[in-house]
Each structure stands twice: as structure tokens, then as C-alpha cells.
């Protein structure tokens, strides 16, 4: 494993045929700060020179704002998928010859610090028009281990999508929880993503803490180890009001410090990457 002070080489992401890239999914109750933290972590990685792709599987906008990318409703173009041959289980597959890596290079947006951003699109109500794009997205994500990027994925709030396989790409699931009963209860439910064969590693991030012992409170209530903790912070709150990235608006905040430390830890932690 590379040391915490050296970024993983962008030229050689594979060592002994095994990827050393991060594969992280962010889940949690609504409002806990998933998108904000996912976006900030991705920007930190990218600012350190690492190749990163951010996956947005929420049909509503949020993650792009946290990254500093203009919100767009557009999904992956129709050309990316073709009808699958009859008899196959899925209706669509990626266009012939289109690999996961090629699809990301072609269709992902590029944001500040070179972070790549891929979404299946945003809805103003009806999700049906996004169906082909959703297929493309899921196919791209299914093969994402073959690509050279760190992968940071943000899921919609709650327990529906995580338990429907949308976090399947992840080797590490980070559950963002506030020190409030409903948020911690949600985290406890999401902790079950770590059960079963081939399950990802699951840990918590205690966000918007108000007391020194809130990280412990979250840990006890959720049964999860707390790998980072960030306090309530007026500068972060202001960033959310304005709709600007925390890393740009509040670069010296305890939140950003906590996520820098988390990255150090992740570089050392074997199981967060495959």
C-alpha cells in the first residue's frame, strides 16, 4: 500500500492487478449532510491530484452544488445504450464497444479540480423519461472497478435506494448521521448494509455535532465506528444557504479538517479499496 503522504499514482492505478482506488457510497437520513460531505471529500481528493469520479444517483439536485458544478437536469444521452437482444434479462445494455471507462470520459462533466461528475439526470416529477439514462448509469457503475478513478457515490436520502442495490459498487459505505434520534435510527437501519456475504465495510460520520461527546453518542446509538466528526458551523451553514461548496467557502472549517483526516485514514485502511 502506498503511504498516506503520497497520492496513489495516477499513471498506475493497478498494483498486482488490483485497484487501489477508493469505492465509497454515502448514505443517511435526509439533511444529515451526505451530499455536502461526499462533494467535499471528492474535491479534497481531486485537489490532491487524484483522479475522482463522483456518482450522483439522486433524481433531485444536490451533489453538483456541493462540488461547485452548475446544476443540470440532463442525463446520459440515449446513444449510450442500445436495446439488449431478446432473451436477456435487462432491456438495455451499453452501446456496443462502450466501456465503463469510455462512457465516463465521454459523458461525465468535469468540475473544479478536475473532479468528474456523472448523473442519470434530474426529474421535475416524472422519472420515466430518465429510464434509458438510468440503465446507462447502472451499467457504467456495474463495471466501474475496471476504471482508473476513485469513486465517490452519493445516494438519495433514506433507506430505499441503498437497499435496492444503488450502493452495490461500494467497498465502503459511509453513513452520515446527526446526533439526533431519527438520524441515528436511520443510520442504525443503514448499518445493515454491512451484513451478509461480500458486504461492504460500513462506518459512520457524525455531522453537525453540538457536544463533545456527540461522536460517542452516534457510535453507541448506531453500532457503527465513527470515522470522522464535524461540528455545527456557521461558515458551513452559510455555504449551504448560498449553495456554494464548503471547500471553497469554508476551507479552514473543522468540517474540511475532519475530511482531510478521514482521507489520510482511508489511504491507510485496506478494506475501503478493493
Amino acid at each position: 500500500m502506498t503511504s498516506a503522504t503520497q497520492p496513489v499514482s495516477a499513471d498506475d492505478p493497478f498494483e498486482d492487478g488490483v485497484s487501489r482506488r477508493l469505492r465509497i457510497a454515502f448514505v443517511g437520513k435526509g439533511g444529515a449532510g451526505k451530499s455536502s460531505i461526499a462533494g467535499t471529500l471528492a474535491r479534497l481528493l481531486a485537489a490532491g491530484g487524484e483522479p475522482v469520479v463522483c456518482l450522483d444517483s439522486d433524481p433531485l439536485p444536490g451533489l453538483a452544488t456541493s462540488l461547485g458544478i452548475a446544476t443540470s437536469d440532463a442525463g446520459i444521452p440515449d446513444e449510450a445504450v442500445e436495446e439488449a437482444p431478446e432473451g436477456e434479462r435487462a432491456r438495455y445494455r451499453l452501446a456496443t464497444g462502450l466501456t465503463s471507462e469510455a462512457a465516463i470520459r465521454r459523458y461525465a462533466d468535469t468540475g473544479p479540480d478536475g473532479v468528474r461528475f456523472l448523473q442519470f439526470g434530474k426529474t421535475r416529477g416524472h422519472v420515466a423519461p430518465l429510464m434509458r439514462s438510468q440503465f446507462a448509469f447502472r451499467h457504467i457503475v456495474a463495471d466501474i472497478d475496471d476504471t482508473p478513478w476513485h469513486v465517490i457515490g452519493d445516494l438519495p436520502a433514506g433507506t430505499r435506494q441503498p437497499f435496492f442495490g444503488w450502493a452495490g459498487f461500494a467497498h465502503l459505505v459511509l453513513v452520515v448521521a446527526e446526533p439526533a434520534m431519527s438520524s441515528m435510527l436511520s443510520a442504525k437501519r443503514l448499518a445493515r448494509l454491512g451484513e451478509g456475504e461480500n458486504a461492504p465495510l460500513v462506518a459512520a460520520i457524525a455531522n453537525k455535532t453540538r457536544r463533545d461527546d456527540d461522536a460517542d453518542l452516534v457510535s453507541q446509538a448506531t453500532g457503527l465506528p465513527v470515522w470522522a466528526s464535524a461540528p455545527v458551523d456557521p461558515a458551513v451553514r452559510e455555504a449551504e444557504h448560498l449553495g456554494v461548496p464548503i471547500i471553497d467557502h469554508a476551507p479552514d472549517s473543522p468540517t474540511v479538517q475532519a475530511l482531510r483526516s478521514l482521507l489520510e485514514r482511508l489511504h491507510n485502511e485496506e478494506r475501503s479499496s478493493p
Partner: peptide, 14 residues
Amino acid sequence: TAKSIEVATRAIDL
């Protein structure tokens, strides 16, 4: 917040 206003706008229109 910008994010919640964006969702609210869509909800109102819908």
C-alpha cells in the same frame, strides 16, 4: 438553503 429551495420549486410546479 439553495438545495431545498430547488426541490421546493419543483414540488410547487408539480
